[in-house]
């Protein structure tokens, strides 16, 4: 690769580089300790962004250069820790995996907390109800008898059977995109079912019946109305709705 020779102005972008641009973020704020009290409000910030910047970079820029009180969770910043699920232009995504250039930066980008969980401050919601549902489906390997002295055997095909649902990072993007969950906070929600699926279809596990019993509850899998929001929202590309359907089918046939 060779550099172009037509660098007559200092601001000329390099070959292949996306130029810097201004972007406006419309952020849903919630600052209970401020004069706003429990009332949420919209706040707008305009920052300079660079070619491959993500929504998280823009939020950091706001926090670090404009308003230190803007509050959100984040950690790994590359889509594996699950801290920064939020509603970006009306769709649940991870802020660290969403490039600004991919969400039409010509117009203000709206950023809101995920729905269905109590908002604590700005984009931070109370995750406890979400984790409580997760814990309820017994998200751990259940076996009986003595432990083997070496590993349990499992074929590559058996391993493949539940590979998709092992990818879950518990970010809540799916559960908080589900209309059933919005109206009925008691519903287990897609993430808990995904994590039940991960064990129900693991050939080493013996707790499938117990989990199916739990999910057969009135707040269990049957509440799912197959709107596919969860599948679209999943930043890990898990086929969430399909996993829920497989759990439903297992419940009818007890074949897993």
């Amino acid at each position: 690769m060779t550099a172009t020779l037509e660098n007559d102005t200092a601001t000329e972008p390099k070959a292949g580089e996306i130029p810097s641009f201004e972007v406006t973020l419309r952020v849903r704020r919630h600052l209970p300790e401020s004069a706003h009290g429990e009332d949420s409000f919209w706040d707008e910030f305009t920052v300079l962004a660079h070619g491959t910047d993500r929504v998280l970079d823009a939020l950091h820029k706001i926090k670090w250069e404009h308003d230190g009180s803007l509050t959100f969770r984040r950690s790994c910043a590359h889509g594996v820790c699950g801290s920064d699920a939020m509603r970006i232009n009306g769709r649940n995504r991870l802020a660290c995996k969403t490039l600004l250039k991919d969400v039409n930066p010509d117009k203000p980008i709206t950023v809101e907390p995920i729905k269905g969980l109590p908002v604590i401050k700005d984009l931070v919601v109370d995750m406890e109800p979400f984790f409580a549902s997760y814990r309820e489906i017994m998200p751990f390997l259940i076996t009986s008898g003595n432990e083997p002295s070496k590993e349990r055997l499992q074929s590559a095909e058996q391993r493949e059977r539940f590979d998709d649902t092992t990818k879950c990072i518990l970010c809540a993007a799916c559960t908080s995109s589900c209309p059933v969950f919005w109206t009925d906070g008691q519903y287990f929600g897609p993430a808990a079912i995904v994590n039940a699926h991960r064990f129900i279809f693991d050939s080493r596990d013996e707790g499938g019946s117990q989990r199916l019993e739990i999910l057969n509850d009135k707040e269990g899998v049957w509440r799912c109305r197959t709107t596919f929001n969860c599948t679209e929202a999943c930043p890990r590309g898990i086929e969430v709705t399909k996993a829920i359907a497989e759990v439903k089918r297992a419940m009818i046939t007890r074949a897993f």
Partner: peptide, 20 residues
């Protein structure tokens, strides 16, 4: 340490014989 994790349920990739 690896065998502990497998027994806890960690989904390791497998050999054709079904081992880790």
């Amino acid at each position: 340490a690896v065998l502990d994790l497998e027994r806890m349920g960690l989904p390791f990739n497998r050999t054709p014989e079904g081992r880790i």
